[in-house]
Design a protein around this nucleic acid. Structure first.
Length: 784
DNA sequence: GCTGGACATTTTTTT
DNA sequence: AATGTCCAGC
């Protein structure tokens, strides 16, 4: 029998060599797989790498690295191990270590929870790189996608049907508006927005309408909220719909009411990992705690200093109190930063150390100090924007790429003046965020049609489109339909279908039945045609496209709608089960169009919030001013709020790798008011030794006059850089008059070819005389 | 039922 | 400044 100590130290050395690209702290996090673990991962500390390798370790080697278990064949293994330690490459070490594995977990027993689809996607990709095929079985996804997966199997226990729909904030708002009206509460007593917020907050805290009513006491407002909440919940249920918060809350409910179901999942998941734990709300942390109860093999990763979503219900307390909730939790701090130069870190540390409620961390780096932080005062935002552009231009002239730069602002409202300057200076840029694709009116309308086609009892979506385009079916009629539906306990759609039967609807019965027929025809169409065909049929047959064509800004909306056809086509090609309802399910949890992450060379403009997790060689922060950053609403900022603003500043500063510019103007125009503003207090918190104040060398007169630039020249804006056109050379382009072959419709002649959103819209007359409009990227056309 | 003009509103937003 | 929402009058 071989010496246990020798075996284990050899094994340890092998592990350290295999994970040699990690620093000791990172390695410790990777090895500590049993028991609760909190990884406090500072900005740029290699968090993703740690998570991916920790999961790989769990699956490949189990607890081997931290266990002194001696396998039976240890004496045979040891020489092999010693030899591999001396001469082996990474792959060979891996094979040897696999032989030493101690209870490695099957991939499907690992649950990895993220907040964004983007993060989930990144994890999946990187896990696939390290683990290959088997990575597919890991449960990696967002809180919402994982809960939806669970609910689709069990929600019938709660009285919903398993094919439930998911309502977004907009749908919910509509529903609440209706309810407030019905209950005669009045918008002034309870604005829809406050109701929505209050209900959402309740759900984030896993509280039911009854809980809220109980606690409301004599408070009129809270009482009204509770009443609305109650009805809202009933209404959602009868529409068989969940809102975003329900997805989490009802999973909690399912687990509370059906312990056998919970046990099933508790047994199933041996290892749980939660990313961005500082962004969890109480409902989510409850859920984790329920699932982790068995072995408490739960690892949460996050950074209390980067908690910037409290307005969405996230609570720093989850991460601050982790070691209280999970007894004997191990805490590992990742403080070595691999991203930023020394001075930038000193600035970041200087800012964040003013916060009181934190776990405490200090980033350090082996990198040199680098440049000082550039602080510059300008008179107007036009000058500020121009300064940014000029600086970028100079650096590009010296060899930088446009994509090395980011401009990060506190509020979207700042993007306008920046955009104006970028257009004027002809610098390529891309604005991230703002209005998102699936939130656009035209997209929501078409999706509403598709939802109604898939499920006619979806009354909220039905209301949305019943009179869009105009069909002379007004609010009074719709209200009548709604009350008839409630009275007779049928869906609104069935009332519409049988409009003739109801006396009250006599006058509009023809219009209503026409509408019902339209929906039914489209529904039949969808059963015999592909998804993109259905989408495009909806756009045409409902008259929606014609309506857009007549609108003033209709062209862009038309492009968006056609983009939706493209995304349906993409889905049809890639999804396992490309049905209409699957498509809608997928979109419900997706916030923006994928593939819009640009790899083309342009400057990134975005809010600090959306920059979290990203890095850029050079970062500009315009509007680093009191009142704007930290932002102050009319109410005085509480300490809590200031601390969150400070964390936001910390996030902003730590995005920069080499250069950081903090800009402020004396004179800022915001929301139609011009105000004098002082430099941000956060600037004073940065050690002056790492700062460089640039004097304003410009005289204020003529310069700023010239920069008063009319932003109405949006023609230019849209032409050049605004929408990065996907440069695709893969698809052949056809001119008017050419004869083409379509796989389904056969031979046809191109009547017109209109470039559109990186694609070409063709109007083609086919041999049978029909004229179709098709998108080039998806039509699979061939030259004849 | 539709339209136009008054009126308010304006942080951040992973799902 | 810019955009969405509401309501009165047609």
């Amino acid at each position: 029998m071989c010496d246990k100590a020798v075996f284990n130290s050899t094994k340890k050395s092998l592990f350290d060599k295999y994970f040699g690209f990690l620093n000791p702290k990172q390695r410790e996090a990777v090895y500590s797989i049993n028991g609760p673990l909190l990884v406090l991962a500072g900005a740029g500390s290699g968090k993703t790498t740690v998570i991916v390798n920790r999961i790989a370790n769990i699956i490949l080697f189990g607890n081997s690295a931290n266990s002194d278990f001696l396998p039976e064949n240890a004496d045979i293994l040891l020489p092999l191990m010693q030899n591999t330690l001396k001469n082996g490459n990474s792959a060979e070490i891996r094979e040897v270590l696999k032989k030493c594995a101690v209870e490695p977990a099957e991939p499907y027993r690992v649950l990895c929870i993220t907040f964004t689809n983007k993060a989930a996607k990144e994890f999946k990709e990187r896990l696939a790189q390290t683990l290959g095929e088997s990575a597919r079985d890991i449960w990696a996804g967002t809180f919402h996608s994982i809960c939806v997966r669970i609910l689709r199997r069990h929600i019938d226990l709660l009285g919903y049907s398993n094919d439930f729909a998911i309502y977004d904030t907009d749908d919910c708002k509509k529903l609440i508006t209706e309810i407030i009206k019905e209950l005669n509460i009045g918008e002034s007593a309870l604005p829809v927005k406050s109701a929505l917020n209050a209900i959402s907050k309740a759900k984030e805290n896993d509280r039911t309408a009854k809980d809220e009513l109980f606690d409301a006491g004599k408070d009129r407002f809270l009482h009204n909220v509770a009443r609305v909440y109650e009805v809202y919940q009933t209404r959602l249920k009868s529409a068989n719909a969940l809102d975003f918060d329900d997805i989490i809350m009802l999973t909690n409910r399912l687990f509370d009411l059906y312990p056998d179901v919970l046990n099933k999942y508790k047994e199933h998941f041996k290892y749980i990992l939660v990313d961005e734990y500082q962004d969890t709300n109480p409902s989510q942390s409850k859920l984790v705690s329920k699932l982790a109860n068995n072995k408490k093999n739960v690892c949460v990763v996050g950074d209390d200093d980067q908690s910037i979503y409290s307005f969405r219900g996230a609570t720093v307390e989850n991460i601050l109190g982790f070691d209280r909730e999970y007894q004997n939790a191990k805490i590992i701090r990742l403080e070595q930063n691999y991203r930023s130069a020394g001075n930038i870190l000193k600035a970041a540390n200087g800012i964040i150390e003013n916060n009181v409620g934190r776990k405490g961390k200090e980033l350090w780096t082996e990198a040199p100090d680098g440049e000082k932080i550039h602080i510059k005062k300008l008179y107007t935002q036009a000058e500020e924007a121009e300064f940014i552009c000029e600086t970028i231009r100079e650096k590009v002239a010296k060899g930088a790429k446009y994509s090395d730069f980011a401009v990060l602002y506190r509020v979207n409202a700042l993007s306008n003046s920046l955009e104006t300057a970028f257009v004027k200076k002809r610098l390529p840029y891309k604005i991230f965020g703002g209005l998102r694709f699936y939130e656009r009116r035209e997209i929501k309308d078409i999706l509403a049609y598709l939802s109604v086609i898939a499920n006619p009892s979806d009354s909220v979506r039905l209301r949305r489109i019943i009179n869009v385009p105009r069909r002379a079916i007004g609010d009074t009629t719709v209200d009548k339909i709604a009350s008839l539906a409630t009275e007779n306990d049928v869906s609104m759609f069935s009332v519409i279908e049988n409009a003739r039967v109801y006396q009250e609807l006599k006058r509009s019965s023809l219009k209503l039945e026409n509408f019902a027929q339209l929906i039914n025809e489209l529904s039949d169409f969808s059963k015999t045609h592909t998804l993109p065909e259905t989408v495009s049929q909806v756009i045409e047959k409902t008259g929606y496209r014609v309506m857009l064509a007549e609108e003033e800004n209709g062209i862009e909306r038309e492009e968006n709608v056609l983009e939706l056809v493209s995304s349906a086509a993409l889905f049809a090609e890639t999804a396992e089960n490309p049905t209409l309802s699957e498509f809608l399910n997928e979109l419900a949890l997706v916030s923006d169009l994928d593939g819009y992450e640009t790899d083309n060379d342009s400057v990134a403009l975005m809010t600090v919030h959306s920059a979290k997790g990203l890095e850029f060689p050079t970062v500009f922060i315009p509007g680093f001013e009191e009142g704007l950053f930290p932002i102050t609403q009319s109410s005085f900022g509480s300490d809590r709020e200031i601390e969150e603003e400070r964390r936001l500043a910390y996030v902003a500063v730590t995005r920069a790798k080499n250069s950081l510019y903090l800009l402020h103007t004396e004179n800022r125009m915001l929301y139609g008011r011009t105000e004098f503003r002082r430099i941000s207090r956060f600037c004073d918190e940065i050690p002056q030794s790492v700062c460089e104040h640039h004097s304003k060398e410009q005289k204020r007169s003529a310069f700023s006059q010239n920069t008063a630039y009319s932003s109405s020249s949006s023609g230019i804006k849209n032409n050049i850089w605004n929408k990065p056109k996907p440069e695709k050379a893969s698809v052949e382009v056809f001119d008017e008059g050419s004869v083409v072959m379509h796989p389904m419709f056969g031979k046809g002649e191109v009547l017109s070819a209109t470039p559109m959103g990186g694609d070409v819209l063709y109007e083609i007359e086919f041999a049978n005389g029909s004229i179709k409009r098709l998108m080039g990227n998806f039509a699979k056309l061939k030259k004849c």
